[in-house]
Design a protein around this nucleic acid. Structure first.
Lengths: 344, 344
DNA sequence: CTGAAAGCGCTTACAG
DNA sequence: CTGAAAGCGCTTACAG
């Protein structure tokens, strides 16, 4: 491994000069600069970023701790973060906390001395995370972090209300909700918003709430539970899109015409939502924007912008699609031709 | 920021002892170890991983350089890498080369002094990447890297042949191919495999090849081109799934019954492939496994296993789904009820 | 403009 | 078992 010492000696200068030349400091003769650069070139010198970070206490990287690295939801989030990080010349250090608070703390600790700041999403923690280790940190979603941290969230409750209004306005009266994982704040806020809206709009005080876990499988399970119970509902509002996708598939297999027989709504607007058939009505949580906003906020804090620590709340938009269209003829060539549909 | 010096002085010992105690060295009295740990605890000490890495020349992290961080394809890949990295206690340093060879080299350089080894995927480079900077490196897909590097690839050509055989066996004769981006080796190999298989199976020497770019939009464009040209084809084999998804949607909107009127096949088996309607026949490129294999290989190399530098080739599996079923009645309740379908 | 030196936070032979 | 010292590869005041 060639070090700056090697290029310095090859160029016949001190490491100090080599460092200055390589970092574009002005105080160095054009001639020696050239000599040093040639030496570096010929030796194929690559600076040791770790060492540089140690001396400068600046790492040109930001850390991202997420509950999972997988799936369209996180993929979108990372995309947004990467976009702004890249435009600022920052590298990304990613860590998967695997839904475990203990691992989340470990991950945060493992970032010390590697990054200039952190974006953390840990909506599953019931207890607030261990406080910041002194580094700039922004919390994503309804993550709770000890001490102060800037925050980027979406208005889950408000969005759930918007969706509920949409369902009611479209003639669905009896609406069930498929919940998210216990202890997940995003899920809890969505449920709250739904409950409140339902109470106001239909007077229903105890709407049916079916357990779920944010996965496709959980959605399928909820559908089976619903069918088995024989409960008659007009529509189902799922705490996230994956749940809705699983639920829709199971419902369709059981002969229900999605939309006509039973409305289905999701939350997140992951890309899959408009590929499924029928396409899924959902709330666009604009994860890419959340990620980008978080990254921008973090960078501002790192750069010493003190006003940057207040929180941002993004408002999801309703994506009106086929799964909440009551009369199939409204959606031209895309309606499923299932047994039920034909009989009518 | 509290350092090891702080905990040492608080515990009344030297930093050497503090370091030893904190790292679980055996040569330290139980009593002093306890004192040190308490000091660390009370000070909320978090080791500076960067500094530790510098001294030990070991970073407990691996770097991953990809053409993009976004989309199900990369998401799967990262998932596989993360699984084995995590099981070895390694962090992930992710970098997006944005499809640019220059950025790829930069990204590799930026990893020096941060990671113990690299996984690099850069299938778009026409010229081989700058050689390894001395660190262990494994190339993914048909990435070409100067000097030696272990390699994990999938058999693109063989898989394309398998798919072509499937199409022909299902009665599709005139088959077009939608290509991937120019200069992408995976795409080129798939096209080669297709051409060769077609020549052998149908005698056709110059099958129709429509340009594409691995995106949904490119697929839609290809479909429009196909329709506008009036060329009659029985099936379209797309260089990847995203292309197939875009093509299918456009074809369906134009009134074609996918499967019955025209077969469509993809490549990759991204999760969306079985959500679209009709579900998409494709080759499972098992990206998660590719990622996992690459990570395992890399770790073996890092740990000094010299035999670990030969290459691995994974064989994709055919995922037979609805988009290549000729008679709609075969696929029960899932067929699209389009104008064409009704008229029959 | 250039160099010798200190220091970033840690680990690890080397003595004791 | 414990401590003083050197060193990881770099940058940056401080002198000259």
């Amino acid at each position: 491994m060639v070090t700056i010492r090697d290029v310095a000696s090859k160029a016949g200068v001190s490491v100090a000069s080599a460092s200055r030349a390589l970092n574009g400091s002005s105080s160095v003769t054009e001639k020696t600069r050239k000599r040093i650069e040639e030496a570096a070139q010929s030796l194929n010198y690559v600076p040791h970023v770790g060492a540089r970070g140690l001396t400068r206490n600046k790492f040109d990287a930001i850390g991202v701790v997420l509950p999972d690295l997988f799936g369209e939801f996180f993929s979108e989030l990372i995309r947004g973060i990467d976009r702004v990080a890249h435009s600022h010349g920052l590298q990304l250090f990613l860590s998967n906390m695997h839904g475990s608070p203990r691992e989340a703390s470990q991950a945060v600790a493992a970032m010390r001395g590697r990054v200039d700041g952190l974006i953390v999403m840990a909506p599953d923690c019931l207890t607030p995370m261990a406080g910041p280790t002194g580094q700039p940190i922004v919390a994503l979603g309804s993550t709770e972090i000890d001490g102060e941290a800037a925050t980027v969230t979406i208005d889950n409750a408000g969005a759930a209300r918007t969706m509920t209004e949409h369902l009611v306005a479209n003639g669905y009266r009896k609406i069930a909700f498929v919940a998210g994982p216990r202890g997940n704040r995003d899920a809890a806020q969505r449920l709250d918003g739904f409950r409140q809206a339902i109470a106001e709009l239909t007077g229903e005080r105890a709407p049916l709430v079916i357990p779920g876990d944010f996965t496709e499988h959980g959605g399928a399970e909820a559908a089976r539970l619903l069918i088995a119970s024989g409960t008659r509902v007009d529509a189902v509002f799922c705490a996230n899109d994956m749940t809705a996708v699983g639920l829709m598939a199971t419902l369709a297999d059981a002969g229900f015409a999605i939309g006509a027989d039973i409305g289905v709504a999701g939350f997140d607007d992951i890309p899959i939502a408009h590929y499924v058939a029928p396409s899924l009505t959902t709330m666009n949580a604009c994860m890419a924007e959340v990620g980008a906003a978080a990254a921008e906020r973090l960078i501002a804090i790192i750069e010493g912008d003190t006003c940057a620590s207040d929180s941002i709340v993004l408002t999801p938009q309703l994506m009106r699609r086929e799964s909440t269209v009551r009369r199939p003829e409204l959606s031209q060539s895309k309606t499923k031709n299932m047994e039920e549909g034909i009989q009518k």
